[in-house]
């Protein structure tokens, strides 16, 4: 297994953060509309966990999907264009923020109906096994990694998915990003089992990991992915904290400024930066340089989105059936 390139991870995390900051700005300017869920504060989970996947592995996620898409290597330009509702977007502007996807990257997309995608992910894992064992496709050795939030573990679909995944020993990693809130509802209000991985413990091995530490995240994700590839499902509960509102328009009545500030010490980017500096892998000056480069890249990303044309009105009628009726 390749050694983790912490500097590259740092850069990706900075890119995700900057992408999200630009989204917020463009939302304020009404160039982005609707519902926008930012990933600020959770970057190490995506970068650490998705970094443990190989090209043939699969990624399925929920609506807070910008960080996952970027960590999987999707180009930021079509993502921003999608947020602007432009024809050059990943979904030609039809989908918006919550439905990024890219088949070439085995990124099956973000899903906005909480909980529903766990079953889809499980079905993909089932078909990997089927293709290998029934159709004899020896190269089908991929693993599915399915992201979801703590809130999503309250619905029946969650239990249905972990139950069947265990029954058929499917190659799937369930990755719960426990950011302590389901929208405005704190963990202890929405569930009695606040150690989320324990909800799956009758079905599969699992553990709680520090999702703000990209190194630990990567290491435990590698373990989980290997287990899924060789034995069966594995459950990861990544502890993290969302530093922004649930969505860009969230007044955050459920927590105070002080609550948020108290958690800034856990900011995964600041933590990694300090670690890299301590290990002499990065200087303040180089960090500034990275910020500058990312900023420049993001300017081009926003410009691309701005200059892209709106979809043609006829696009409303495309991609409904295999052949138009």
């Amino acid at each position: 297994m390749e050694k983790q390139d912490l500097l590259a991870d740092y850069r990706t995390m900075v890119l995700i953060r900057s992408f999200e900051e630009h989204c917020q700005q463009q939302y304020t300017r009404a160039r982005i509309g609707g519902f926008l869920h930012l990933y600020v504060g959770q970057e190490a989970v995506a970068v650490g966990a998705i970094g443990a996947l190989k090209a043939q592995d699969h990624l399925v996620t929920h609506y807070r999907d910008h960080g996952h898409a970027l960590a999987r290597g999707l180009e930021p330009k079509p993502l921003m264009a999608e947020l602007f509702g432009r024809s050059t977007g990943t979904g030609k502007g039809k989908g918006g923020s919550m439905h990024f996807a890219d088949k070439n990257k085995n990124f099956w997309g973000g899903y906005a109906i909480v909980g529903a995608h766990l079953l889809l992910a499980m079905g993909i894992a089932y078909s990997i096994k089927y293709k290998r064992e029934v159709l004899g496709e020896a190269d089908q050795d991929g693993v599915v990694m399915c992201f979801f939030g703590d809130g999503a573990t309250n619905g029946g679909e969650f239990y249905e998915a972990v139950s069947m995944a265990a029954l058929y020993k499917l190659p799937i990693v369930f990755l719960c990003e426990n950011n302590e809130f389901a929208m405005g509802t704190p963990l202890s209000v929405h569930t009695s089992v606040t150690e989320i991985h324990k909800k799956a413990s009758p079905f599969m091995p699992g553990e709680r990991v520090n999702g703000n530490d990209v190194e630990e995240m990567r290491a435990r994700a590698l373990h989980a992915v290997n287990h899924a590839r060789t034995e069966g499902p594995y459950f990861l509960e990544a502890m993290t904290y969302r530093l922004r509102g649930h969505s860009a328009a969230d007044p955050q009545m459920y927590r105070t400024r002080d609550d948020i500030n108290a958690r800034r010490s856990g900011d995964p980017i600041a933590l990694l930066k300090q670690k890299l500096i301590d290990q002499n892998l990065l200087t303040e000056k180089q960090a500034k340089q990275i910020d500058k480069e990312v900023e420049k890249e993001m300017d081009a990303v926003v410009q691309f989105a701005e200059e892209s044309p709106a979809p043609d009105l006829s696009e409303a009628w495309t991609e409904i059936y295999s052949k138009p009726l």
């Binding site: 509309g33 509702g85 432009r86 039809k94 989908g95 918006g96 696009e315 409303a316 009628w317 409904i320």
Partner: peptide, 17 residues
């Protein structure tokens, strides 16, 4: 509304719907 699977995001398409 149009007989398409859902309301699209892009403003012109939404207005079309």
């Amino acid at each position: 509304g149009l007989d398409i699977p859902a309301m699209p995001y892009s403003t012109p398409l939404e207005n079309e719907f």
